[in-house]
Write a protein that binds this DNA or RNA. Structure first.
Lengths: 105, 105
DNA sequence: TTATAATATCGTATATTTACGATAAGCGAT
DNA sequence: ATCGCTTATCGTAAATATACGATATTATAA
């Protein structure tokens, strides 16, 4: 993306697009499902469940944290991740709202 | 993305991630809203409403068509676009289903 | 038939994403 | 203090995405 013309777009559309971007990789959806099932996971557990390297998984976790879909608290040498339930619910609402604006939905 | 390891991910997660990718740019969400309001639009009308060049808008339309969120029928020298309501509804369901799996939702 | 109009595609430049291995940084235990 | 474990970050390579102008294509109008 050479030039950022995104300033001219609607703000809530930009936010929603940004969340959609965070959801735009199966590994990240997978991670969300894992965290939902296990409540809390350290990085290593997630790495064991995802067919990607440790560093790549760490990057995906970073992307999910960027949009606050997950929280990570450091516990000694490890990081304990969990869903950020408030943001997950907000995201659900945002998508629901988007689709409810469509006549067909 | 050097190597496609995505084969190992769950199929519905891949599909949902792919749709999320199509929604991951504010211009494309904008286009969906425009098509919802106007029912049918030719490319030129959309170009007039989006602060991007004709060729760029055309690319965004192509991405939305790739995932079948919109349909485009050629009418003479122009293309008439509209929402693919069935796919929009399916997409809504897919997101609803995803979020309903989360305990907090 | 030629010109005009609309739009998709091509070519290109830049930015971002994705992936990996290697390294660094932090903590706990010895 | 050092070693080992965990995890984030760095460096790097390749693939995609985003944007634009220019061109090709197609259908209508003159």
């Amino acid at each position: 993306m050479p030039l950022a013309k995104t300033d001219t777009f609607n703000n809530s559309d930009k936010q929603l697009a940004d969340i959609a971007k965070a959801l735009s990789h199966p590994a990240r959806i997978n991670i969300l499902r894992i965290l939902n099932e296990q409540n809390y996971c350290i990085t290593g557990e997630i790495v064991d469940l995802i067919p990607l390297s440790q560093s790549t998984v760490s990057q995906h976790l970073k992307e999910l944290k960027r949009v606050n879909l997950i929280k990570g608290e450091i516990e000694g040498p490890r990081t304990n991740y969990c869903l950020n339930e408030a943001v997950v619910e907000k995201t659900k609402s945002a998508f629901t709202k988007l689709f409810s604006t469509f006549k067909c939905c």
